[in-house]
Nucleic acid binder design. Sequence first.
DNA 1: TCAGAAACGTTCAGATTCGTTCATGGGAGG
DNA 2: CCTCCCATGAACGAATCTGAACGTTTCTGA
Lengths: 372, 372
Amino acid sequence: MSDDRMFGLQRHERVMDELRRHGAVRVRELAELLGVSELTVRRDIAALAAQNLLTKVHGGATLPTELTPAAPTRRRGSVGPRFTIGMVVPSLDYYWPAIVSGARSAAAAQGVNIQLRGSTYDWAEDRRQITRLIEAQQVQGLLLAPNLEGDSLEMIRWIGELPVPVILVERQPPRWTPTPYQLEWVRSDHALGLELAVRHLHDHGHRNIGLLLSKGSPTSAHLARGWDLVCADLGIPAGLVVRDSVRMDEPGHRALIAQLLDRCRASGATALVIHSDPEAMSVAQYCNELGMTIPGDLAIVAYDDEVAKLAEPAMTAVRPPKPMVGRTAVELMVARLTEGRRRPIQRVLVTPELIIRDSSMPLSTPVRSTWA
Amino acid sequence: MSDDRMFGLQRHERVMDELRRHGAVRVRELAELLGVSELTVRRDIAALAAQNLLTKVHGGATLPTELTPAAPTRRRGSVGPRFTIGMVVPSLDYYWPAIVSGARSAAAAQGVNIQLRGSTYDWAEDRRQITRLIEAQQVQGLLLAPNLEGDSLEMIRWIGELPVPVILVERQPPRWTPTPYQLEWVRSDHALGLELAVRHLHDHGHRNIGLLLSKGSPTSAHLARGWDLVCADLGIPAGLVVRDSVRMDEPGHRALIAQLLDRCRASGATALVIHSDPEAMSVAQYCNELGMTIPGDLAIVAYDDEVAKLAEPAMTAVRPPKPMVGRTAVELMVARLTEGRRRPIQRVLVTPELIIRDSSMPLSTPVRSTWA
DNA sequence: TCAGAAACGTTCAGATTCGTTCATGGGAGG
DNA sequence: CCTCCCATGAACGAATCTGAACGTTTCTGA
């Protein structure tokens, strides 16, 4: 089933992954981690460095910085707009690395720099990071993903008054904002993503589906909206919605899952859509311990597709277009900086993708994606 | 399963399925799984790679990522992708010329051609034009603005089955479409445009505002939605909405306007938002004949800004970002044609602009847009 | 400054994979 | 029924990937 070996490209991705997660990697560790010789790792690093995706240092590699020696200058004459864009994201180890990576590669293609700042899901910290970026006077634009829960109007007004253009990433302010210019944003269409999941399950015969939302995520609201719409469209019950945190590191998660499964049984649900992979894997593992089979006794679709592939069975998941969101944000920002205020405000929705694996369909069924 | 042999296309789908499930596939395993020779698998992979559906690597294939070595960079001649894009618009004399013009200039910048076809606001004619463009085999993509009133699902399904990528312009299909790929679109955010108009009037003291919608325009629905939302937000009455055609060339338009003004007087309305310039000018002219002053006795904001500037007094109007819509559509299409199906679906809203002239504010007031 | 240790990269070899060339066979169309 | 065409498969030289060996460079601490 699993390969003992990976392809070169996969290794490259893995290297970049580790790099984004930790900011730096060392050859020795990577060699062990990936199960290849150090020489191979060095070759990988050299290849990635040739694309300016990382900076080679003695003993390993780091994320590229403006200090990178001998950055091959862009093609001769057309230096292009050399902007520096600040980016503040709420997390650097879940969900956001893929967005940052998409942003980084778009930035490389456009010849601009990105100043990345990790924050938390907390507005005060967001604000601190943003303020520091602005005060450093180095950034011409900002890509932000602030926590808009709470008194969002106040935050939005504050953001609107920043001296540089702002584009919100994976966030949607109210449709009208009390700012001199309407705010620009780009986000995944999570409501549609959820709809894809439910319709996939519906296509495979499930008529009674439940939804488990993780608490406190800005995504939940969109998922809930998509849920209501698609259930109404398909004429299936929309009642089984649970908001709870059932991660394995959460105390009492087993009791919560047991409770959830009771509700499924009571309402006759045969499938669950679960927000965020860890929660889905937690549920799957619990089912496994109980002797329930997946997808036989319960079909599961996870939402996020960060680690769903690694579950056993591999989990069908909705994958938000994270790299594309980052990329689009950068492209919008470059356009805004290049064209100035005359350019009309754009708001972009990007559609997630449904990755069909084994947790949602009987294994014997010939594999056939609805996306064919 | 049923057949010992499958067609090439089926095999391709199967390969993509495996790929989506596992993220990577190995030539050897696929050959065994599909019961064909490795050479055949390699040929399949090469074909799929040519469509950017996967990335070929030594020993197999992976899903395309941003690390995917760039396709043959077409620098030297830098001929650019010389695509030809078909564009079918419902009118060539109102509203649409600005969109087409935006599209044309973007096309020139991108080095692609546009085949323009005028149609009507009628689905049968749309379909005829589209069919002809397809059959001529000259276009690699289509920008369409079909009339989606009526049995829109049927039309959407038809559009989804066209052999070239489609982007809808100023049209929004249902959030989910029964097509192999979700439809892509770009449109003006008319609801927000209307909101700008109402808030502008509200800012200048109007607390009782009416809305006149032209009948049968696809825009009306968005305007009505924006109207309900903004009236609720501002806490002003939303009851005075009239749907009528009051163009000067419409028989009986004077009676309808008289009726409208009666309703305004009855409800105490001091301002009107009127969809489409000709209607607004018609009302303004009638008011003028009655001796009412604009904006003194009645403030007017027109929606479309096609000819609003020519009115007397010059009319404040919401200007949908028409050139930008056309431009964005072309840019999206070029991206789609360049990057293929792997590119996630984008849906873009562009924000209109409020052009403040004389019909909404006392003439003495220095004209100053809230947009500074 | 120097020496030891670690890391690096060149070279070579073994193994695997790729793709060209040519031959075969079955289905579509006449 | 025949022919043409395309998809497939076999074989083999070419290309690629990987790791070991070993001389060279860089780092670190005395």
